[in-house]
Amino acid sequence: MPGPLHAEPGIGLPPLTFGPVTRRMLALFAGASGDHNAVHIDSDFAMESGLEDVFAQGMLMMGPLTRVVTDWAGLHRLESISVRFLAITPVGAVCRCEGQVEERFETDAGPRLRVALSSVIEGGAPNLSGEAIVRL
């Protein structure tokens, strides 16, 4: 596994697995993140809103996906990161978080890597896709 300085397009970053997502985790993340939206922590509220149950905060799932980049490149190299939330992440989900170097390119501020990111629920659908720009 080469570091970011010698990474070529196509190489995969070391993946990580996050989960299983528990109700306890959702409650703790509500407190830690400051997002107290009841739809993630109160199943009565979720059902009154027409949902079957509480589901994970998208930002809870962005945390581990971001770690795929920072564990590999270091926080100091992270210039930007963006994610799209593709599907609800249910209680019990185990997510496989992966990254792949897509492109090496030049900017006025120096060379950069574009890294594609994805989180996929085991036995299910992709729940996040994203992209990070890594400074070299």
């Binding site: 939206n37 009841a38 739809v39 509220f45 009154e48 809103s49 027409g50 905060q57 998208g58 930002m59 962005m62 926080l75 992270l78 210039e79 930007s80 990161i81 963006s82 994610v83 799209r84 939330f85 609800i88």
Partner: peptide, 17 residues
């Protein structure tokens, strides 16, 4: 309206720590 609110996308651009 939090009964109907979903998070669609999130992006961070860092200029510092």
């Amino acid at each position: 309206d939090y009964r109907y609110l979903l998070h669609g996308a999130e992006r961070y651009d860092f200029a510092g720590y």
